[in-house]
Amino acid sequence: MFEARLPQAAVLKKLVEALKELVTEGNFDVSPSGISLQAMDSSHVCLVTLQLNDDGFEHFRCDRNMSMGIHFGNLSKILKCAGNEDTITLKAEDNADQLTLMFESANQDRISDFDLKLMSIESEHLGIPDQDYSAEVKMPSAEYQRIVRDLTSMGDTVLVSATKEGIKFSTSGDIGTANITLRHNTTPEKEDEQTHIDLKEPVALTFALRYLNNFAKATPLTPQVKLSLTKDLPVVVEYKVGELGQVRFFLAPKIDD
């Protein structure tokens, strides 16, 4: 038996909206410690990982580990039927072929349940090593969204370089070139509006803007995003989901021939 209850459906709605275009389907691995997901995009250029911790839920019960194959487009259709403020409960019997989603309105005068058919998805599980990054940059997620959107109008790839001057995003295309630099800035009173650059050594990497833009679909989840960069390694773009956990996007760099 698996049962997980969240006080606000909005969180799950936003999570699925952030994932569904990048990864059409994937396995929700449930265990007593929470729900996790690892899925690659169809071209195997990026990897999405999701971790939702058991203690971040209002109620969490998982008697045995299960892998639930989910089509995110279909899950999104069901979640559109939930109000943002609804309480949401996910339920499945052991070895079930369906996941039940129950929505309750705040004053409990409306209760609905939807069953989502589960799929059998074979997925290769990748081991992601823990490591120290050359540069870790925390910035407002809306700023990240704006930068990658603005640069997409100029080019297809972006050179991200972190130095003691700041983090610079550069692109070029048929119409010209663009550079946007963000400096370490702890002036704003609100921590959410600050930019923190933690630099161990300068690093510069090139990435496809299309994917970085896609990651920005997670912006509504949280006001800050963290970028982690190391030479010749995938960039990590991380959005924390309150006390519940986080979603991380790993994007392989472009490598000079």
Binding site: M40, H44, V45, C46, L47, E124, H125, L126, G127, I128, P129, T157, T206, A208, L233, P234, F250, L251, A252, P253, K254, I255, D256, D257
Partner: peptide, 14 residues
């Protein structure tokens, strides 16, 4: 000219 790397080139089977 640059080539897009695959993510599996960086992370092993786990």
């Amino acid at each position: 000219k640059s080539t897009q790397a695959k993510i599996s080139a960086f992370f092993g089977a786990g």
